[in-house]
């Protein structure tokens, strides 16, 4: 290649290497775009934030309120295991795993959601 000098190729190779290293580090360490953060809100206040990908084992804890709820967290998922409310909508919602998933308990005023946008829709009617 006559139009390129040796240094050009070295430079290009170095940049390509950096690009590879950066994209690899995103895969390994994750970044804001793929992290799944469960946010637990009660009456508008954030009570807890949990990085679901860093959970080890299984943890349960109670959300106090008019109708106490038992929250269960495992690696990559979170759910309302039990609730004292009459309608049980939050329990029936089941495990939350994807960004944008949410379990709502109207009687207890709590929202558990995995931060981020749902990709396929902007909102939902039900």
């Amino acid at each position: 290649m006559s139009i390129l000098k040796k240094g050009d190729l070295l430079l290009a190779a170095a940049i390509a290497l950096i690009a590879l290293a950066v994209s690899w580090s995103f895969k390994v360490f994750g970044n804001g775009d793929t992290a799944r953060i469960a946010v637990i809100k009660q009456k508008g206040r954030v009570i807890r934030r949990i990085d679901l990908d860093r959970v080890t084992g299984s943890e349960t804890f109670e959300l106090k309120g008019d109708y106490p709820q038992l929250i269960q967290v495992e690696k990559g998922r979170i759910r309302v295991a039990e609730a004292g409310c009459p309608d049980q909508v939050c329990v029936e919602t089941g495990w939350l795993t994807k960004r944008g998933d949410a379990a709502v308990c109207v009687p207890n005023g709590t929202i558990i959601e995995i931060e981020g946008e749902k990709s396929e829709v902007d909102d939902a009617t039900y």
Partner: peptide
């Protein structure tokens, strides 16, 4: 105010190599 756009960095670096080559030939 968000670091999440950094995920574009690898693609933009490679893209720069390609476009830089094309404009470089023109500049030459």
């Amino acid at each position: 105010g968000t670091l999440s756009v950094f995920s574009y960095l690898p693609v933009l670096l490679i893209a720069g190599l390609v476009t830089g080559f094309i404009t470089g030939v023109c500049s030459r």
